[in-house]
Structures are given as C-alpha cells and as structure tokens.
Design a protein around this nucleic acid. Structure first.
Lengths: 360, 360
DNA sequence: TAGAGCCTGGACAACGTTGTCAGATGCGAG
DNA sequence: CTCGCATCTGACAACGTTGTCCAGGCTCTA
C-alpha cells in the first residue's frame, strides 16, 4: 500500500487533490439541497420549502422536487439547520450510571417528554465523577443542547453559570445544584427515611442500624437526617456503632452490617440508605439465623418474592424524570422564571421484612 | 394571558419585531469567536487556533485570547464545527426501552466505547414500534451521527440503505437487520435456550413448557428453536399445549403458565423465553404447592436470593454493547468492510430452580 | 546591512441550511 | 393592451466555525 500523499514542505500539511479531499472530509458524499435543486431543475429555496412543508409551491414543482429527493436519497442536514435556526431540538441528560436500574426509567421518562416536544435526548454517564460530569455537561452545551438535566456528581456547578445565562435551560435532579440557584427535582429523602425508620420503631424496634453512602452526597445526608429525626422523635439515643456511612460496595457493606448485628448492643433492625446497600444487606440477613427487620430505600424488582418480602421506601424514578423534563421545557417556553425546588413524595411499601418484631 | 402575536394575513406567519425575533431565534446571545477576537484584539482564526490548541500562537497572544474567552464565557459552537468538518463525533443508539434492565448496561457499554473514541451517544427508545424505530433512526441520521447502533423493532431496514451508502456506520444488535446486509452482534439465543432446556432434561424432566415472545421477533424464534432442538435431541415429542408464544405481559403469561401446570399432561418444568416472562412465571411458581423446575433466559438481580435460587441462561449485555460499539468504530476507521454476524455465547448459571427433580 | 527563511496573524471562502426580498409569471379588470 | 395583483420562484446573505493562503515582522547569517 504505497499510496504516498504529497506533503507541503513548509507547513507539513498534506496536499490532496480536490476530488480526494472532498471524499475525505465526509463519509460518502451526501446530496445537499443544491444537488436536489439541480436535479429537479428548480431553485435551492424551493427545495427548502418542499422539505419543510412551507406553502407557496405548485403541486407540479413539489412532485419534481420529491422525485429528486427520492432519487438522490437526500436527507436534510440538521447540523446546518441548527446553525441557522439557533435551536437544536435536543436536550442533554447527565446521569450517574445508565446501568443503574434507578436511572433507566428516569431516562426513559425524560425521553418521552422530550419526544412529546419534538426533541432528542443525548445522555451520558458521569460515573459519579465530578470532573467527568463537568466535561460531559460542557460538551453537551457545546453541542448547543437547548436544555440540560443534570444529576449532580459534584457539588459545585458554577461552571454552568455562563451556559444558563446564555439561555440553556437547566434542571437538577435527585440532588440539588451546588453553589448556583437552579431548578431541582428530588425525592423527599428526609421524609422517606424518617417514615421508614418510624415504621420500624412502630413495630417495636429501638436498636436500629443505618447503612448509607457518604454524607457529602446530598441524598445520603438527607436520609441520615431522616433516620436521626425518627429516632429523636421516639426519644431513642443513637449509638455511633449503629450507623455506617460512606460504604456502598458489597465488600464493605457486608462487614459493616455484620458488625452491627454482633457487638454488645446488636441492632434488631436495619435501614439501608440506597438500593445497592439494600441488596447486600438482604444477602447478609438471609445468612443470619435470627430474623432481623429490614427497610430499604429504593424499590427492587422481585422484592415481593423474597422471604420475607422486602419492605422499602420507594421513589418514583419515572415521575422524577417526567417532572424534571417538564420543568425544563417550561423554562424553554419562557413560562418559568424563578428556580424552584420540587420534592416528590416517597411511598412506603410494606412487604414483610419491615414488620418483623424485634428478636431480642 | 392575552399576549396576542400579530400574524401576517397572507402567510399565517407570525410577525415579530426584530429585537424579539432575535432573542427568539436563540436563547440569550452567545459570544462567538468573532466576539472573542474583537475583545482580544486579534483575528478570528487566531481564536480558532487557541481554542483548538493549534500551534503558531505566541504565549502572550494566547493569554489574551484565553482571557477574553474566560471573560465572555465563550464556548465553541460544535454545530458549526460539525458543519465545517463533516464529522459529528456522535453516534446514535436506537433501542427498545431504556427502562428495561437489559438495555441499561448495554447502553452504558456503548457509551463507554464511544467516550473512548471521543464521541457522544444519542439514544432513543423505539418502544418496540417499527415506525418509531425508523423515525428515530432517520432523525439521528439527519443529525449526521457518524454511526448507528440499532436494536431492531421492525424487520425491514431497507430505509437505512441510502444512509449506509452515504457512510453512516451501522451495527445491529440483539436481532439481525431485515432485508439488508449489515453487521450484527447478538447472543447465541438458539444455543442458550437449547442448553437451558437440555439442563432440565438432564435433571430428569420430559414434560417441559416453553413461554416466549412472538416468533416474529428473532430472539424469540431462535430460543423456541433451541427449545425444540433440545427436546428433539432427547427424543421427546413436544405437545402443543406446552408452548405459549407471543405473550410477555404478566396478565397473559399468568394464565398461560397456569394452563401448562394443570391440563392432562402437566409440565414438570418451565423454560421462560425472556426476563419479563421469567418474573411472572416465578410469581406463579411461588404460589404452587408442588415444586416445578424452572430456567429463565436473561439474568435477574437478586435471582440468587429467591427460594430456590433462579437458574438462568445469562446474556452479557455489556459485552454485546461493547462488541457492537467497537465494530461500529471499526467501520468508521475503515478497517471493516464485509458485514459480519457475531454471536456471543450465553452462560448457564445454576442456582437451584433448574436442578429440581420432576415432581411427578 | 541586506536577504533568506521562519514565525505569527488575519482575510477570505466554504460547509448546508433558512430568512429576506425582489423578480417572474399569469390572470383578470379597466 | 396595459396595469395591478396574486402567486410562485430563486438570488443572496447569514449562521459560527475551520482550511487555505498570503502578508508582515522578526531572526539569523553572510
């Protein structure tokens, strides 16, 4: 393959014949409106009119144009359109991890609302990394998405200020934005956790463990606060050994749970701060020979089929996504001006594990 | 809200004063390279050079430009860039439903590969509707995505021919493309189902039920074929009443399963054709007082915690996504020319339900 | 000190589309 | 026959960026 390409001695740039250069600059050579116009024997603008269904074209002309479009396999280049019109009819969604079952329905809900508004959804996963979140969000802004739904990984979103000022609609989801004033849609994490723990207390438990994520994550902090509030409401002092923070991966949740269950003052019930923790705790509890009550935050598929059924505080991921997206398009339509914080209620689903009495 | 907008009597177009129109045409007024150039007191191209890290700019000039960029909150408009360069550095993913737990990891895997190639991922759900699939795929092509990963809903993809000819890299996933020749990445549905059913047979079952989706769906047909092959290999004639096709929603799977389990020749084991069927069948089996063996296609979270654990034929969604995406970028790099069909192996995970003996 | 060569910077066209506006055409009325 | 009007059509600029190419200033050497 000695197909040497001549090089400009001075600049080092490759010198390529016009014909080759053309086919190199894009894949294949897509027909443009100009090509269609030429083939149909009409003006450029007439083609544009036909493509966009604008009035003022004779049926006969339209037919000729349609024929040419068909024959050439023309498809309008939306990039160029966007450049001209200013709006891209696409919105961005920055979430943590699309593989997480919580985000699938959320993303889908956002997509459905976007679709109803004629917009496409571009999404990316931050992998819980603030830098990557920023990189992604800004890349989406560079694409000139009309709006941005962000599930924050970091806690400083001032980098979005110029974008918001420039008119990019922005809604934060699941956790509030850091250091800027913006719309937020989230679950009532505090209330949900408080209710879940109160549920355990109502069933006679006093020594209740809490395993959650790092408190620097807003949801984790709120749920911890809910746990503490419920305990305080019931006048139960909380032992340090009953709470485990900052662990979510199985290898570390397991010993944390086991420690709570042994110790001098073993817990009789555990509240899990999120779905990943829940899964591991359920595993640990299944291995115990005494029955320990359990309530988890976030619902799980098949939770009702386990023995006992898993009682959970459920969030409605789809509702959150829908609300956020609607808020976003509300901003775009210019109806919404002042940022708002919308808290969606959670729902306690009792299935058995949370109703077990203390095994003292 | 009587904010009437004057309308041109003739065209019906809204007549909007220039000032408003401008702010309507884009949100806010984003600074352009021209603005940056003016502020920094340099030429347009110099700004471009700085933004793209091209050589040939004095540190001092670069500093001035950076300062202006900072001050104005400039961000390059990638739409314009795309128009000029021909490539969008984005790929499209058309899947069935992002809320389905199978597609989350798949999508995420595609995203990771895209990211490694500096591309963004735009995805959309077809909701298993062929028209919507086409609409989505073509919308993505209009955006000039560099490539397209499609999980087919329909069975005729000739509408993509002009796009493929124009250079849009295309890979089909999970099911082969209809009526066109293109890359496909899928699981060994036939082999997986055959293995799963053979596993049941090996544990002594002869009356084995199959509940699957409509055979017009390729995966469903292949799995059915696998079921039949396994039965035939063991010289077991299949009763019509043992197979139920075309049902996936719980309301219809339930009676189908119950019918197989009663009847004159009740099955002693059931093979489920996909994850949605699996969930319902497990529910039905949990209510039975005799133990029925079970193997499902597709893994489930918590499958190991059920009593008994659920034996499944697992697909590796992430591997499928990764393979497809790599194939896509392979096409884009011009390495791959002839379409190929790549089948990924499935894995039988034994957890108990599939090892139950027949309860005759 | 002049000339050659390098380095930096900027003017300009082009990407494919849409908005504006004016020209062409056809028809009916004066 | 000419004018006016309505209808249809097309030339042209602009969107914001990048590739090409040339100019001017600098350094280095003879």
């Amino acid at each position: 393959m000695d197909r040497r390409i001549p090089v400009d001695d001075r600049t080092g740039h490759r010198i390529v014949p016009e014909t080759i250069r053309r086919s190199e600059s894009r894949y294949g050579n897509r027909p443009t409106m100009k090509d269609v116009a030429a083939r149909a024997g009409v003006g450029l603008k007439t083609v544009s009119r036909v493509v966009n269904g604008e009035p003022g074209v004779t049926p006969e002309t339209e037919r000729r144009v349609q024929e040419a479009i068909e024959a050439l396999g023309f498809r309008r280049n939306d990039s160029a359109r966007v450049l001209r019109k200013g709006r891209t009819a696409s919105i961005g969604l920055v979430l943590e991890d699309l593989a997480d079952p919580f985000y699938g329905p959320l993303s889908r809900a956002v997509e459905e609302v976007a679709r109803a508004h004629g917009a496409l959804l571009i999404n990316g996963s931050s992998a819980e990394d603030p830098d990557r979140e920023q990189e992604l969000a800004l890349a989406l802004c560079a694409r000139r998405v009309d709006g941005l739904v962000v599930i924050p990984a970091g806690d400083d979103h001032r980098y979005l200020e110029p974008e918001i000022k420039a008119g990019v609609a922005t809604v934060f989801v699941d956790r509030p934005a850091g250091k800027i004033d913006a719309d937020v849609v989230l679950s009532d994490n505090f209330g949900g956790a408080r209710d879940g723990v109160a549920h355990l207390i109502a069933h006679g438990h006093r020594r209740i463990g809490f395993i959650g994520d790092m408190p620097r994550i807003h949801t984790a902090a709120e749920r911890l606060r809910g746990y503490r509030a419920a305990m305080e409401d019931a006048d139960i002092p909380v032992r340090d050994s009953w709470t485990s923070l900052g662990v979510t991966d199985p290898a570390r949740v397991r010993p944390a749970a086991e420690a709570m269950l042994s110790g001098p003052e073993p817990v009789t019930a555990i509240f899990a701060g999120n779905n990943r923790v829940t899964v591991t705790v359920i595993r640990v509890l299944a291995e115990q020979n005494r029955r320990v009550a359990f309530v988890g935050f976030d619902d799980l598929e098949l939770a009702d089929l386990l023995q006992p059924g898993v009682t959970v505080v459920a969030q409605d991921a789809a509702a959150i996504g829908r609300t956020a997206a609607e808020r976003l398009f509300g901003q775009l339509d210019g109806n919404l001006v002042t940022p708002e914080r919308i808290e969606l209620p959670t729902r306690l689903i009792t299935r058995g594990s949370g109703e077990l009495p203390p095994a003292d």
